[in-house]
């Protein structure tokens, strides 16, 4: 094993890291929004025109592998006329997938807010939307921050899957380098450490936030 040529590999690995981090943040932002819409759409079961499609989307996404979803978006959607470049397809797939899981987290968080909060807002004459925005969601967000943090870290690792649709994120960059140089041991070891060097501090951060929230709870 020899890392003497690591400095030659570094530029493309570093570019891979940057793309991985970019994919993580953009997909997460998309997932947070999609998740909120999927959760709110299911909030009132009497509004079936909202709740049924939302439920169906969540079940389809949770019931199939992420890798298959990425293939489907990248290879099958073009035959329906929707052609996305690899990065866009990757973000769409990762964002939808994580969003579906996050919608369940949101739902649990909204349910966990004391029913008395709704009654108090109702008794003050506050309309439903206002109660959601000012009373329920801020409290639900506190409840869901730890699980959302964990999904964020999962998403960071799942971005490796988009290497299969030729997005040159960290793993894909490594595969290319390894194929060119035949230094599989060294390169995959470096990548291994790089993922860990990001995800481990991130999970410490989530745990720290979790602890802080617990202490400042009611």
């Amino acid at each position: 094993m020899s890392f003497d040529r690591a400095s030659e590999w570094w530029p493309s690995l570093w570019a891979g890291v940057q793309l991985t981090v970019f994919l993580t943040f953009v997909s997460m932002a998309l997932a947070l929004v999609i998740g909120l819409f999927l959760a709110l759409a299911q909030f009132d079961p009497r509004k079936r025109y909202l709740s049924w499609p939302a439920r169906a989307i969540v079940e389809v996404i949770r019931g199939t592998p992420l890798l298959l979803q990425l293939f489907y978006i990248f290879y099958v959607f073009p035959s329906f006329g929707l052609r996305l470049d690899p990065i866009a397809a990757g973000i769409a797939g990762l964002g939808m997938n994580t969003g579906a899981y996050l919608s369940e987290v949101y739902r649990a968080g909204i349910d966990a807010v004391d029913k008395g909060q709704w009654e108090a807002a109702d008794a003050l004459g506050m309309p439903t939307g206002l109660t959601f925005r000012h009373i329920v969601l801020p409290q639900a967000f506190r409840i869901i921050i730890p699980p959302v943090g964990n999904y964020f870290i999962s998403l960071f690792k799942d971005t490796a899957l988009v290497s299969t649709i030729s997005v040159s994120e960290l793993l894909f960059s490594g595969e290319l380098l390894a194929a060119q140089t035949f230094r599989y041991v060294e390169i995959y070891s470096i990548i291994f450490v790089m993922y860990l060097a990001i995800s481990y501090p991130a999970s410490l951060g989530v745990r720290w936030i979790e602890r802080r929230l617990r202490f400042s709870a009611r």
Partner: peptide, 18 residues
């Protein structure tokens, strides 16, 4: 309209904790 004219206080306070 009615709720704006009728104030209510609950057994368990139900203040907004945040």
């Amino acid at each position: 309209a009615v709720r704006a004219e009728v104030g209510m206080v609950f057994q368990r306070f139900n203040l907004f904790p945040h």
